[in-house]
Structure formats: structure tokens, C-alpha cells
């Protein structure tokens, strides 16, 4: 049952991430802006979910591991940083990484603390 829930969540999360990068590119920005947006949003949602504590396992599998896990990405983050470095836009690379760290970790922390910061072990 759990793998099916993970799959269903991912079927929604991954295309939403593609949509975000395409929207960013279409409005004349670097697609990395879209990745930044989904990483911030997904971290916040998972922060709330795990901060609440006592959330049923099937919700964690569907929304946490499946949806948030696939809405967000680490591989594209790393690839975009390397691409920006290779394009000799070191300032952009550093700025993008710093923005992801500050906003992405900040959003996860805010969600976690607002939800009560449960003594739960992250699983998503």
C-alpha cells in the first residue's frame, strides 16, 4: 500500500515541478527560480506535516514521501549551480545556492515550528 501512495503523490509532485521551471523560463527568468519556488514550498509543507507529529503513516507516504519528495529536488539544484558556475556567472551560482539555503531551510523551519515542532523523525 505504501509504495502505491508514494507513486500517487509523485505523479502530482514531479509534473508540478516541471510546470514551475517552465513558468519561470516563460517569464524570462532562469528556470532555477522555479526550482527554488518548489523547494521552498515543498520544504514548508513537509515541515508542517512532520512538525505536527502523529500524522498517519499513509498521509506521510502520500503527501510527504510522494508529493513533497517529488515536488522538490536536489539533483536539479546541484546541476543548476554547476551550470551557473560553468556559464561564468559565479555570483548567480552563489546567490541561487544562498537563496535556496536561506529560504528553503527557513520555510521548512517555519513550517516545523508553527506546527509544533514535534519530536518526530523526518521520513519524507
Amino acid at each position: 500500500m505504501t509504495p502505491l501512495l508514494v507513486v500517487v503523490g509523485a505523479l502530482v509532485g514531479a509534473p508540478l515541478r516541471l510546470l514551475a521551471t517552465r513558468l519561470a523560463a516563460r517569464s524570462g527568468h532562469d528556470p532555477a527560480r522555479g526550482t527554488l519556488a518548489v523547494n521552498v514550498a515543498g520544504g514548508a509543507v513537509l515541515g508542517v506535516l512532520l512538525g505536527l507529529g502523529g500524522v498517519p503513516g499513509w498521509v506521510l507516504a502520500l503527501v510527504g514521501t510522494g508529493f513533497c519528495g517529488s515536488l522538490t529536488t536536489f539533483s536539479t539544484l546541484g546541476a543548476d549551480v554547476v551550470r551557473l558556475v560553468e556559464e561564468r556567472t559565479l555570483g548567480r551560482a552563489v546567490g541561487y545556492l544562498a537563496a535556496t539555503l536561506v529560504l528553503g531551510l527557513g520555510a521548512a523551519a517555519a513550517g516545523w515550528l508553527l506546527a509544533g515542532g514535534a519530536a518526530a523523525t523526518p521520513a519524507g
Binding site: 514531479a14 515541478r17 523547494n39 519528495g69 517529488s70 522538490t72 539533483s75
Partner: peptide
Amino acid sequence: LGGYTTWSA
């Protein structure tokens, strides 16, 4: 690869 890796966790 996007689905395999994760920022949220």
C-alpha cells in the same frame, strides 16, 4: 532523478 532526490526531506 528529480523524483529520486529530494530537498524537502
